[in-house]
Computed example of a mutant assay.
Amino acid sequence: MISQKVAQQSLRRLASPSALTSSMAKFASPAAIATGRYMQMRPTSSTTTTTDPTKILAEQRLNRPVAPHLTIYRPQITWYASALHRITGSLASGSLYLFATAYLVAPVVGWHLESASIAAAFGALPVLAKVLIKAALAMPVTFHSFNGVRHLIWDFGKALTNKQVITTGWTVVGLSSAAALALALL
């Protein structure tokens, strides 16, 4: 029933051009859309700009508020611990992947990365060099491990106040330094 009314009204509009249809010319009739004789028109802007659009954008940027930069804040242990956690994780895993790849490629290339040759080369080093190398290898692993435990504690919703976060941050630094030194002196 409704579809018949719509069809009749459309046919009446097409059959008799009246003042009503000319005033409603901005609306498309179904027949005009179907035949492709309808073009949608939009009015143009009444204001014209004579300035360059890139200059407008630059002027708008000058009026935007500026976010505080890192230089106005006092550095905190949480910043350093977060950055060092990512760096030590990359160093520990990267060195493991590098050595594992070299160990697998060594027979093809002719390198001697067997345990006996590595132990002999390391044993020939002076004591201070041995301690420094072991400390350099142990520090990223111990820091990343202790800081990972700290993050697990945070995941349980514990030690999240500012004072506790600072305390656990310095605790991680102390424990990882002591553990790295202990491993280096073994």
Rank of each mutant, 00 (worst) to 15 (best):
T101S: 15
K55W: 07
M39C: 06
G94A: 05
A119V: 06
A182H: 07
T54G: 04
L98C: 13
N63D: 09
D52W: 02
I56K: 13
A179W: 06
A124V: 09
A106I: 05
L20G: 04
L57F: 13
S95N: 12
A83V: 14
T54P: 00
Q9I: 11
A120G: 06
Y73F: 15
L185P: 01
V109Y: 08
Y73P: 02
G157R: 06
D155S: 14
G157K: 06
I166W: 02
T47Y: 14
A32K: 15
L57P: 00
I153D: 03
A92S: 14
T101H: 12
S22W: 10
A81S: 11
E114D: 15
G36A: 05
I133Q: 02
M39T: 10
L125C: 05
S117N: 11
T161N: 09
F156R: 14
A179K: 02
F27P: 00
F122Q: 07
T35N: 13
K163P: 00
T142Y: 05
H69C: 04
I56F: 07
R64F: 10
G36K: 04
G169P: 00
G89M: 07
T21Q: 15
A31C: 04
T51R: 13
A124Y: 08
S177K: 04
S46H: 06
S18I: 03
L152N: 07
A83H: 11
S145Y: 10
H151T: 01
S93D: 03
S18M: 04
L137N: 02
S3Q: 11
A106N: 07
H85Y: 15
V6L: 15
I166P: 00
S176K: 02
S29C: 07
P43I: 04
T78G: 02
A28E: 05
H144N: 07
P17M: 05
L14F: 14
